[in-house]
Design a protein around this nucleic acid. Structure first.
Lengths: 350, 350
DNA sequence: CTGAAAGCGCTAACAG
DNA sequence: CTGTTAGCGCTTTCAG
């Protein structure tokens, strides 16, 4: 094989511009201590030679790695990919995170880690040792896993926790699930619904509780009772079926159901269909997530949109700004979710 | 901020095991020239200390970067992500490529590059200079872009070309689109169809031609004419609508249509519906790609499955084996596509 | 504001 | 088979 063409290094640029390597380094790192004309000259050489610094060498030099790790739950992610049902959580993370990284010269690397695993620390530790990322973006349920956050904290690696408000290190970001649940509930209230059922998400997720709170609060403000209207679930289709069945079998069944995930809402839709209930005329349904599938059901689902791309982008920004030395606030960042009205919600039947 | 905990390096392991750094290096690189007992002792120290070599340092040492770049078309990928219609090309690449990389200690980095851009070389060159990947996986249409393949070749970077059989450097992989088109055509022939329309994909893609060939060959073998049955398309929904319209407006309209993409097949489905044709009783439809959306249409589409995960995995394997010094064959690798029969195909109407 | 020196963690090329 | 030596390309000291 032909010898790999030697790439242009900082040394070449230095020679070309007639300055020290150090000055070139200062220019590429936007260091203030460079005379403008000097910087300009160096920049000209950089452009001329098409110089791009090597990530590996920069890392070795003792500075940043310009790498951000996006951690996702291995089991769930693989199941999503293999089932090919269109769940696009990772894509949205890439859309927001990767593009933001690119804008700042960073790259994003996706990493899958088991949640329910005793060697979680070994797995994550190995990834960190190998990659030495400048930051890690944690999604639920990792974002609230103390094994993970502690490890990261000990290693002095900054990280963002999406969907967690637990005290502790790391940037916290939420999509204000409570508010989102209110939005959904209020939409139904405006349509005249009075009995609105709610299917909770897995209790392992902080945000499951927030969503219940939002629904409860909106119902309370409307002066409505919630007795028998809350059913547990775990985000899965089957749990949605079970919850909807329980809800509709109740003494005073709801005319609308909010599911804490798209899958659970689909479960409710199936139950409705099986019982000959028309959606939305007999039963309105709202889901959480707004994954692609909700666009394809009949009717398509009114859904709470999780702005994953936006929150990933913010996560990356927080990490990158922190790397750059900007002293950032550690207050939770809120990227508000919104409601997209589609065909699964309509006026309550009188 | 607390000083970043100094990670364990090869030096620590060497000291712990009482050997030279070089010996440790040999062990982690599975070099043959190490006595088994020695290797065992070193490995014990590695495990004890939880040592994981730094990617950056390995790169700097002059060996591999353990990074593989997966190049995708920027415009199309972003459009897919933003539309949230469930296209999962990137996910499938990750599923196959990332997992394979992980198995060998590599990581995969997704990179988006404009196809129709004059600064394509600058963009790609910069990515390569920064990352110094050990290999690049090219998907269509990049895989047949001479600007890209030449650049990679000049830089001495190995790469895999998915969906291209053009002569030249790089590993070539296909999903045997010709065979796939035959499969689809033969399925329809068996159902008694004699007039089978075909909507071609964008002529910018080599595989568009292969698919047409497969269809033509199968028709010829069945002794059937193809006059007026081939319509051009560009993979898009609207082109599918146009093609299906032209086909059904023809003198002797087809009873079945094969679309070279899911989107074009959806276009055909829409046209059929608009004309009051029942699918599959009045018109059978088959699509190429098998993206998630085909599972959600009514009826769900019979489709040619593009085994993107498998072909990405093979790509990564080829690159990694090549890096490891194994002398690989440069014959095209074929990962066969398959046909999934769903509800959009049925017996031809008599 | 700029330059020189030292070293990051690892591996290649040699010695032994 | 194992150890020694010399960098890789950059950034961090620290001088000027």
């Amino acid at each position: 094989m032909p010898r790999r063409k030697q790439a242009v290094t900082i040394r070449h640029v230095a020679a070309h511009a007639g300055v020290s390597m150090q000055t070139v380094s200062r220019v590429i790192n936007r260091d203030a201590n460079v005379r403008p004309e000097m910087a300009e000259r160096v920049q000209a050489s950089i452009d001329k030679l098409g110089y791009v610094p090597s990530l590996a060498a920069r890392r070795m030099g003792g500075s940043r790695s310009y790498l951000i790790l996006a951690l996702n739950d291995r089991e769930r992610t693989l199941a999503d990919w293999e089932s090919r049902m269109g769940a696009d959580w990772v894509d949205q993370m890439l859309l927001g995170g990767m593009l933001t990284c690119a804008k700042h010269g960073y790259r994003m690397i996706i990493e899958l880690v088991d949640t329910h695993s005793d060697h979680i620390e070994r797995e994550l530790g190995a990834a960190i040792a190998a990659v030495r990322p400048d930051g890690v973006i944690l999604t639920p349920p990792h974002s609230q896993n103390p094994l993970i956050t502690r490890l990261l904290d000990e290693q002095g690696i900054r990280f963002a926790r999406i969907g967690s408000l637990l005290e502790g290190p790391g940037f916290r970001l939420t999509m204000d699930d409570e508010h989102a649940a209110r939005l959904a509930t209020e939409h139904l209230l405006q349509l005249g619904h009075r009995r609105i059922g709610f299917v909770a998400g897995s209790p392992d997720y902080e945000l499951s509780g927030w969503r219940v709170q939002g629904w409860r609060a909106a119902m309370a403000e409307a002066g409505l009772a919630t007795d028998g209207l809350l059913k547990p679930g775990d985000f899965s289709y089957t749990s949605g079926v079970a919850a909807a069945t329980a809800l509709l079998d109740g003494a005073d069944p709801p005319t609308a159901i909010i599911g804490s995930s798209d899958q659970m809402a689909f479960g409710a839709l199936a139950v409705a269909r099986a019982r000959g209930l028309e959606v939305p005329s007999d039963l309105s349904i709202i889901s959480f997530d707004d994954t692609p599938a909700v666009r394809f059901s009949h009717p398509p689902l009114t859904a709470v949109v999780q702005p994953i791309a936006a929150v990933s982008a913010r996560s990356a920004e927080l990490i990158i700004a922190d790397c750059a030395g900007e002293e950032p606030s550690h207050d939770p960042v809120v990227v508000e979710a919104s409601l997209v009205v589609r065909g699964s919600t309509g006026p309550a039947r009188r």
